[in-house]
Computed example of a mutant assay.
Amino acid sequence: MQVETATTQTEAPATPVLLTATAATEVRRYIEEQGAAESAGLRVGVLPGGCSGFQYGLNIEDEPGEDDMILESEGIRLFVDPFSLQYLNGTEIDYVSTFQGSGFTFNNPNASGGCGCGSSFTV
C-alpha cells in the first residue's frame, strides 16, 4: 500500500512590503524636503501599542540599521527590521487624500482586526 502525503508550501511575496506609485511620490517628496542623503530610505515598522495592540511607524532615515532587511519598491528603499517584517509580509502601503484629510494607509493581509483610526491593528 502506497501512502501519499500532501505538502503545502506558503511562498513569501516577491517584495514583502510594497508602496503604491502614489505613496512612493509622497515619500520622495518627504525625502527631498528633509534634504536626506542619497542612501536615505523609508523605515517601515511595527511597534507595540495603539488601541488594537500594534501600530505602524514610518520615518525617513539616512541609513538602514545593522539588522534591517533592505527592500525596494517603486524606486524607494525600504528599511524593515526583523521583528516588523513578520507582521508586514505582503503589506501594501498607499497614500490617500480625502476631504477629511490625507495620509498613508496600510493594506495588511496579516491583520485580523484594526481600529477606526487605521493606524493600529491586531494579528
Rank of each mutant, 00 (worst) to 15 (best):
D81R: 08
Q86H: 07
I60V: 11
P48Q: 15
V80L: 04
R43S: 14
S73D: 02
E72A: 14
G75L: 05
F54N: 03
N89P: 00
E63R: 10
S39Y: 12
G57Q: 07
T91C: 13
E92P: 08
L78S: 15
L42Y: 10
Y87Q: 04
P64W: 00
F54H: 04
L47R: 15
Y56S: 06
N89K: 09
V80E: 06
E63C: 03
Q55E: 12
S52F: 08
F79N: 08
V80F: 04
S84I: 09
Y56K: 09
E38C: 11
G75A: 04
G90N: 07
F54Y: 09
S39L: 13
V44M: 09
Y56I: 10
G57C: 03
I60Q: 08
G57P: 02
G50K: 01
L42F: 08
G53A: 02
L58C: 14
V44A: 06
G53S: 02
E92A: 11
L71G: 00
P48D: 07
L42Q: 09
I60M: 14
Y87G: 03
E66V: 11
T91R: 15
P64G: 00
F79C: 07
L85C: 11
P64A: 01
D67Y: 01
T91P: 12
N89V: 14
E66P: 06
T91V: 08
A37Y: 11
E61M: 09
T91L: 04
D81Y: 07
G49Q: 12
E92R: 15
Q55A: 09
V46E: 09
Y87A: 05
D62E: 04
G75R: 08
V44F: 03
D68H: 02
G45C: 04
F83Q: 02
D62I: 04
L47C: 15
M69E: 13
P48C: 03
G50T: 00
E61L: 10
T91A: 10
F54Q: 01
F54A: 01
Q86E: 13
L42I: 06
A37D: 13
Q55C: 07
N89T: 14
Y56N: 07
R77D: 00
I76Y: 08
I76V: 09
S52R: 05
G53V: 01
G90L: 05
D67N: 05
S84D: 05
P82W: 00
L71W: 02
V44I: 13
R43D: 12
E38Y: 07
E72V: 14
E72H: 14
D68R: 01
I76M: 12
R77E: 01
L88S: 12
I60F: 05
L78A: 12
G65I: 02
G53Y: 00
S73R: 01
I60S: 06
S39Q: 12
L85E: 12
L58Y: 15
I60H: 05
L58E: 13
S52N: 10
P82F: 01
T91G: 14
F83N: 02
M69A: 11
Q55Y: 10
Y56W: 06
